[in-house]
Design a protein around this nucleic acid. Structure first.
Lengths: 125, 125
DNA sequence: GCAACCATGTTAGGAAACCTTACATGGCCG
DNA sequence: CGGCCATGTAAGGTTTCCTAACATGGTTGC
């Protein structure tokens, strides 16, 4: 039991995640459809997100803003999960890999400053 | 901007707080009525709680389980907020103060282990 | 240049979660 | 015993979220 709230705990409702990520509900559901996140469900079938889900969504948002498409983003996550098992279709080109590494550097930099995207939280105080 | 989610950020819905604290909605609203917490409201008038609110609720729950009544609990919080400004009615007896100090020791002990009450979170994994 | 697809917007209809208000109730204390 | 305190419960209404379906602007491939 860690001192902080577990990052995998499904605590957050749709509306809060929309605010935290500045994504639309449509976008969030679409990314779920593509299995980039898999939020829990309440008994009444409502999505409940964890802090990890929020992180993932912010990362997806970044990749898309950089011009990647869903297929590529999926490959990235697949590769991260299991760097060895690569089928031909899953494989990434050299330039793709370079792009990903560049993005992961930025991601890491961001994580040093905050678990949530910089500058986006003033509306909560 | 701290590394962790701000403890004052209103992130949590009623149902989640009910699970985290094992209090009923009625109880939570009653404690709010007595100004022990003051959750934010969405545009649609729904309560949104912070992690601090959850901590406070757990503390209130403890005090009540120890047999204190709301009046005494209110005094405790008032005193903590401003230890100097005490009117006669606000004042606490010696035995009350001893009871509070005992409870605050327990509280501190608990905080060392977890920000949420020990043993209550297995249902989230 | 057009067809097709991708990511997202929008709308509709329904269900779940939450709101306030009001009344009920069991336990405790003077 | 009477009354109050903390909580339960019910009713009726509103907000938030759900899925499903169709619409659309921007790219991409031919």
């Amino acid at each position: 039991m860690s001192r902080e709230i577990r990052r995998t705990m499904p605590l957050l409702s749709m509306s809060i995640v929309m605010q935290l990520t500045e994504l639309s509900a449509r976008q969030i559901r679409y990314y779920e459809e593509h299995h980039l996140i898999e939020p829990h469900r309440t008994e009444g079938n409502r999505r409940m997100f964890s802090l990890n889900d929020v992180d993932t969504l912010l990362e997806v948002k970044d990749y898309l803003e950089q011009g990647m498409n869903m297929a590529k983003i999926k490959k990235i996550f697949a590769k991260r999960k299991d760097p060895v098992a690569t089928t031909e279709e899953q494989d990434l080109s050299d330039s793709e890999l370079r792009q990903i590494m560049r993005e992961e550097m930025r991601q890491a930099q961001r994580m040093q400053k905050s678990s949530i995207r910089r500058g986006d939280l003033s509306r909560f105080y």
